[in-house]
Design a protein around this nucleic acid. Structure first.
Lengths: 193, 193
DNA sequence: TTGACAAACTAACAGCGTTAGTATATTGTA
DNA sequence: TACAATATACTAACGCTGTTAGTTTGTCAA
């Protein structure tokens, strides 16, 4: 059959759409091909394999997450900035849960390119913390703590692990963020000594 | 062929072994069957399907995790108990990463039995926090925060997301635990008012 | 000894990612 | 404008997956 001007970007875009609508679990190259009106084998003219496709989608997710976070903290300082950062992260995770899951499925180990993307994850957090008087080393650790809290909360809520107890998940989230801010303030005091 | 006294527990045990040695990603019913010297179809005499097998393994993981945590906090109070709790959780996640991953793949939604297992996850945390003067509602929230920090840290470290920056991951972990203890102390003050 | 049950088997199905080999439409060049 | 090269599609197939149906057979109880 004839070609239809299908680009690599189209394939990745359709994959993102399919993951968001059908769920990461139900994603398959055959159905993706169907959505593009081609056969599965033809996809390999545009992508090397499924891993590469996931990597590409991972890039997209990370850059989107970076965008909403940078937008959120613009013009804000200290606790206000950190709260805005967390809220943007949390909202992204709740609104696009299937896409969010792609990040963790990335093969961080071998792929140097994706390693670079790691800095895109870190940058907004570092910016939000910039108002605090912290050493560079403290920030490196605190950045990991922030990501732990956020990722742990989002993925467990999504998995349904927060169903026990009749207390609002939103309140638990607020407490988690408050905990991180307490840690920031405490670290700041330590740095001054 | 003849039977060999194979039990349901043998199947589950072999599955756990295989997941730990080959990785959750490489687990398959056919290879599991091979390890037991039967054909894949014969497994269905012992288990309903793969989901049920995962659920069963999930039970095992949760109960093991509960055990090591309860052992760790025995005879300890407040910050010391919480640190021991976290350390036991962290150690479990690092020593048995593939098995740990099974927990999150559990279908928490429909399965009421697994919902009950949720209380096994919560119990050690509640015990460790018992020394603090907290309201029941505070504990419900704090329990979620604890699990978020721990799960987020373990799964990101395991995925290789903490490779950036030349600072020790162990130090980041210590800071994360310190943050949670700060939150506990702060919550305690609030509760006294 | 016989009947019932449990546990193994074979064969097959539909789905998956992936590769090899082939046809054809478009594009760049002479 | 004609031709060669390239890009994009195709079909067919491979080996893998979980799962089901139907069949055989060993074991245990009446």
């Amino acid at each position: 059959m004839a070609r239809q001007g299908l680009t690599r970007a189209d394939v990745i875009g359709a994959a993102i759409e399919m993951i968001e609508s059908e769920g990461l679990h139900n994603f398959s190259l055959r159905e993706l091909a169907g959505r593009l009106h081609i056969k599965a084998a033809s996809l390999y003219n545009h992508i090397r394999n499924m891993d590469e496709l996931y990597t590409e989608i991972g890039y997209y997710v990370i850059s989107e997450l970076k965008k909403v976070q940078l937008d959120a903290i613009a013009g804000k300082q200290k606790a206000e900035a950190v709260k805005a950062l967390a809220d943007a992260y949390y909202r992204f995770g709740k609104e696009r849960p299937e896409l969010y899951k792609v990040i963790l499925s990335l093969p961080m180990v071998k792929n140097d390119a994706i390693h670079r993307a790691g800095f895109d994850i870190v940058e907004p957090i570092m910016s939000a913390m910039a108002g605090y008087h912290l050493t560079r080393e403290q920030m490196m650790h605190l950045q990991r703590v922030f990501r732990s809290i956020m990722h742990g909360f989002i993925s467990q809520e999504e998995a349904g692990c927060f169903r026990q107890f009749p207390v609002g998940v939103g309140d638990s989230y607020q407490m988690a963020v408050r905990g991180f801010i307490l840690l920031l303030e405490s670290s700041e005091k330590e740095a001054r000594e």
